[in-house]
């Protein structure tokens, strides 16, 4: 299906223009396109694009947020490079990638490999249920898990009940275990998404590929490795992007779960650090440099994946 671009690719276009030159506004009228786009674009420029440029500009200034900004070049970025807190925060973001991205994807792949490939009854119910953590407000997810992880909370109660009382810990307050506790909440949010994606993907793979593999004597592991995995490439990519970016952007969940990065700074993440520098520590310029760095990482990863995807499409097309 052709789109209706006004480059004259469709022969009927010129015909129509000749036919009704007066009443019909042809699609090649370029100023008209702007009229459709402009209203939203003005709002977008004012409240997204302009502020991005503003943030980039402030990141080059020493600025409390109240004082007149003083231009200092890339000093904020240089400081960022040496800042222990920032390293810790970025490090935690990538630590959370293990929980947000790696564990759900591996778990999803493992479970799908065990599952039947035939279409099952009642899939809609499972799909709906498994996706619930995705639509819940992260604030509520945080409140639920903070309560579950409480010292006298349900998790420790259960541990006592099954005779593992020596495992009891103040999970979110423990310097060693808090990052794992926060991370595991991330895994809980993301695993359903991966399962649904992979299950739908594997059902779309042509059954003949498996039959051929079986004829050639492939065992189940080889079938998974040589048929399922390549067939799921697209789904793995989507799961990777979505979960990776949530791990980098996480804010609300940490804000609520560990009240913004505790104990100490064990679970601090970049977005929390941006918030603290900008609004609590009166270092708006420095906070801006952090925000720009974080946004750059996110955009770079998205761009890389997009490039990978389009390259894949090209190779598939040929």
């Amino acid at each position: 299906m052709q789109n209706l671009s006004g480059n004259g690719a469709l022969p009927s276009r010129t015909f129509m223009q000749r036919l009704r030159r007066k009443s019909v506004v042809p699609f090649s009228n370029k100023s008209q396109a702007i009229l459709f786009i402009l209203p939203g674009l003005v709002i977008y420029l004012t409240f997204v694009l302009l502020p991005i440029l503003g943030t980039v500009r402030y990141s080059l200034h020493d600025w409390t947020g109240f004082s007149p900004p003083e231009y200092i070049g890339f000093d904020n970025y240089r400081e960022l490079y040496r800042d222990e807190d920032f390293r810790k925060a970025i490090g935690n973001n990538f630590f959370f990638v293990i929980f947000y991205t790696i564990i759900p994807i591996l778990l999803g792949l493992f479970l799908t490999s065990l599952m039947s490939r035939s279409k099952l009854k009642g899939m809609a119910i499972f799909r709906t249920g498994l996706f619930v953590p995705q639509v819940m407000s992260p604030v509520v997810v945080g409140i639920i898990w903070r309560w579950l992880f409480e010292y006298r909370g349900p998790i420790n109660q259960t541990l006592t009940l099954i005779g593992l009382s020596e495992w009891i810990k103040p999970w979110l307050g423990d310097f060693t275990y808090a990052p794992y506790a926060v991370g595991s909440v991330g895994s809980w949010v993301q695993y359903g998404l991966c399962m649904i994606l992979f299950l739908a993907g594997i059902q779309a793979i042509n059954e003949e590929l498996y039959d051929t593999a079986i004829v050639f004597g492939a065992n189940p592991l080889q079938q998974f490795w040589y048929v399922s995995l390549p067939g799921l490439r697209q789904q793995i990519l989507v799961a990777f992007v979505l979960t990776f970016i949530s791990a980098l952007r996480v804010f609300d969940l940490v804000f609520v779960l560990t009240r913004g990065g505790g104990p100490g700074k064990e679970t601090i993440v970049t977005s929390i650090l941006v918030y603290q520098n900008t609004f609590n520590l009166n270092r708006a310029g420095y906070g801006a440099a952090m925000a720009v760095t974080l946004a750059t990482i996110i955009v770079a990863i998205s761009a890389a994946v997009f490039w990978l995807q389009s390259r894949n499409d090209d190779t598939n097309a040929t």
């Binding site: 502020p51 943030t55 977005s271 941006v274 925000a291 974080l294």
Partner: peptide, 9 residues
């Protein structure tokens, strides 16, 4: 882009 990157302006 996250809101963190636009909030001050």
């Amino acid at each position: 882009v996250p809101f963190e990157a636009v909030i001050i302006p």
